[in-house]
């Protein structure tokens, strides 16, 4: 029997094309919407102050037109020891990231793979610390780090000193252990089959061997995510360094932005400095983007 009913209408060649064009146009509009602040910052960093505000009412605000030069970048280096601040921030962020990955993954490993009494309570306690904002305990923390001892190397002698204020370590160590990183590692480790541990034990591996040879090599996306999530606050750190660091030589980049806010701020220089300190963060995110998204998706954690 042949059917007399008409065949279902096939979409015409134009419909998907139009839909695709509309979708692309919407995507481009959305991308531009989010890119505009960054474009404005980069473009304004090339203009004198008066022109920045003169162009605000038109599309020229987003275009490198008019009196365009690198004068603001020269001005940045005249006003702020920008190279030193960048060096400090790169060092502080890098050490915090490396130590953070090591310490937090170890903690998560113990909470996720080992069997010991009370680990659920410990995990709950760790997660509970997430609800306490840093600002609420910043001042007590200043007092606390001011009491801590440190070993200083003086030639061939080790000297025990008191107080971490005005040092690099005070900008790194309080932020190594991080509840969110532990939780993220924990969630990711849970997705790795425990049979692998048992097989490794049969082959003679100890706990650290399982951590180093089995679990961590399989946790690339989680490591990348923790790297980004640790790097961002370390790079953006502002309140803490201005409370605990007095020497200019030890200051990070974010404190440097305040150098520009005088009675008459130089907005061109502010945009130039902002561009200089934003580009490394963007580059890092682009480099780790794929792993970042993958880890967020697989661990079921939303930032």
């Amino acid at each position: 029997m042949t059917s007399a009913s008409p065949a279902p209408a096939r979409p015409g060649p134009r419909t998907p094309l139009l839909r695709m064009l509309a979708l692309q146009a919407a995507r481009i509009a959305l991308a531009l919407f989010f890119a505009f602040p960054i474009v404005f910052m980069l473009v304004s960093s090339l203009k004198p102050d008066q022109q920045i505000f003169g162009d605000l009412d038109s599309i020229k605000a987003f275009l490198p037109v008019g009196h365009v030069s690198l004068d603001n970048y020269t001005g940045v280096f005249d006003r702020v020891p920008a190279a030193r601040f960048l060096f400090n921030s790169i060092g502080i962020s890098a050490v915090t990231v490396v130590l953070g990955i090591f310490v937090n993954s170890l903690a998560a490993f113990a909470l996720s793979r080992m069997r010991w009494r009370g680990k659920k309570i410990v995990l709950s306690a760790v997660i509970a610390t997430l609800i306490v904002p840093f600002e609420t305990f910043a001042l007590p923390l200043v007092w606390w780090v001011n009491q801590l001892p440190w070993l200083e190397v003086n030639g061939f002698h080790l000297t025990l000193t008191e107080g971490w204020l005005d040092t690099y370590q005070v900008q790194v160590l309080p932020f190594v252990a991080n509840a969110f990183s532990i939780f993220l590692f924990h969630q990711y480790f849970q997705s790795i089959p425990k049979e692998l541990d048992e097989a490794a034990v049969i082959d003679g591996a100890n706990w650290f061997g399982i951590y180093r040879r089995i679990v961590m090599p399989l946790s690339g996306p989680a490591i990348a995510t923790v790297a980004i999530l640790t790097f961002l606050p370390a790079w953006n750190s502002y309140l803490w360094p201005l409370m605990v660091v007095q020497s200019e030589d030890l200051r990070p980049v974010m404190v440097g932005i305040q150098y520009f806010f005088q009675l008459n701020p130089s907005w061109g220089e502010i945009m130039a400095y902002s561009s200089m300190i934003t580009v490394p963060v963007l580059a890092l995110f682009v480099a780790f983007q794929r792993a970042f998204v993958s880890s967020i998706a697989s661990s079921g954690v939303k930032g």
């Binding site: 001042l139 200043v142 007092w143 201005l242 409370m243 007095q246 440097g256 305040q258 150098y259 806010f261």
Partner: peptide, 21 residues
């Protein structure tokens, strides 16, 4: 001399006072 940026100067002083520094 130790110089601080104006916008964060008061916070630095208050923190230093709490640490007796």
């Amino acid at each position: 001399i130790q110089a601080f940026p104006q916008g964060s100067y008061n916070d630095s002083v208050v923190a230093a006072a709490s640490a007796k520094k």
